[in-house]
């Protein structure tokens, strides 16, 4: 896939992020094209989640962040999101004391949310609309988390480790949902599961030591075991077409 014909929905330049004075993102620069899935990769603790949070303004940040041609790095989180950014956080972060329906209602940003898409992708949630989100399984909570983002017309989705801690069956369902979503909205994806990355990602950005060390087509990285070993610390050799995640490769801690 060529990148020359693409425009970028998100550009990040010289991004620094801090949590309680501690530098967690250091001089990160990359682009996210306006189509497809861009995977943000790296070993645990390199700052992938912090980069996503910096883009949203959930942690202190400096640097230039441009969304659809507009600088957003001085905007508070809710304004960044209102410009059309959907966020699926690490660990789901559903509101456990609210019902499924209330979780979704809270996430609606317009008078005409895309309920049909959510009901098509996650029919289980329709059945469980009155159930407290805190009583759902991890997979069901992830569906609520994804549904909250997909309800709205977004320019970009930021999806942070959507398959973390889920069973292989649910990983497949989540992957399918993200594949469907990626047809209509570009996605910046943080993911540890290389099988999932193979299925979803068009491009990859690799962080190491808080900095970007590789940017390019997904195949360029995923077909190069030496690079995978060097950047992600994992051996690659699985069947790329497999959707069986019982033996998935994980980027180690």
């Amino acid at each position: 896939m060529s990148t020359t014909s693409r425009t970028n929905i998100l550009t990040v330049r010289n991004l620094y992020g801090r949590i309680e004075g501690q530098q967690v993102v250091e001089d990160v620069s990359f682009d996210v094209p306006d189509t497809g899935v861009t995977a943000l990769l790296g070993r645990n603790g390199v700052g992938k989640t912090s980069t996503i949070k910096s883009i949203l303004g959930l942690i202190d940040r400096t640097g230039a962040i441009t969304l659809a041609g507009r600088r957003v790095d001085r905007l508070p989180t809710h304004k960044v999101v209102q410009l059309g950014v959907g966020y699926v956080p690490e660990d789901r972060e559903v509101f456990g004391k609210l019902s499924v329906a209330e979780n979704l209602k809270l996430a609606e940003r317009s008078a005409h949310p895309n309920r049909a898409l959510v009901e098509e992708l996650f029919p289980d949630l329709v059945q469980r609309h009155a159930q407290l989100a805190g009583t759902l399984s991890g997979g069901q909570q992830q569906m609520v988390s994804l549904a909250r983002a997909l309800l709205n017309q977004n320019r970009l989705l930021l999806v942070d480790e959507p398959t973390k801690g889920l069973s292989p069956k649910i990983v497949t369902e989540v992957t399918q949902a993200l594949l469907a979503a990626a047809k209509t909205v570009p996605i910046l994806l943080v993911e540890q599961n290389l099988q999932v990355i193979r299925q979803l990602a068009d491009r990859v950005v690799v962080l190491s030591g808080g900095r970007v060390v590789f940017t390019g087509e997904a195949a360029e990285l995923l077909d190069d075991p030496e690079r995978i070993q060097r950047y992600l610390g994992v051996h690659s050799g699985a069947d790329h077409s497999s959707t069986d995640h019982s033996n998935t490769e994980q980027v180690p801690a």
């Binding site: 949203l56 989180t77 809710h78 999101v81 966020y87 809270l106 709205n152």
Partner: peptide
């Protein structure tokens, strides 16, 4: 009221849904 109940649980996540908490 919904925003308040959600905010009591997780204030940051409420803002991450685009709500001016």
């Amino acid at each position: 009221g919904l925003i308040v109940r959600a905010g009591v649980e997780n204030r940051l996540m409420v803002t991450a849904l685009g709500i001016d908490v």
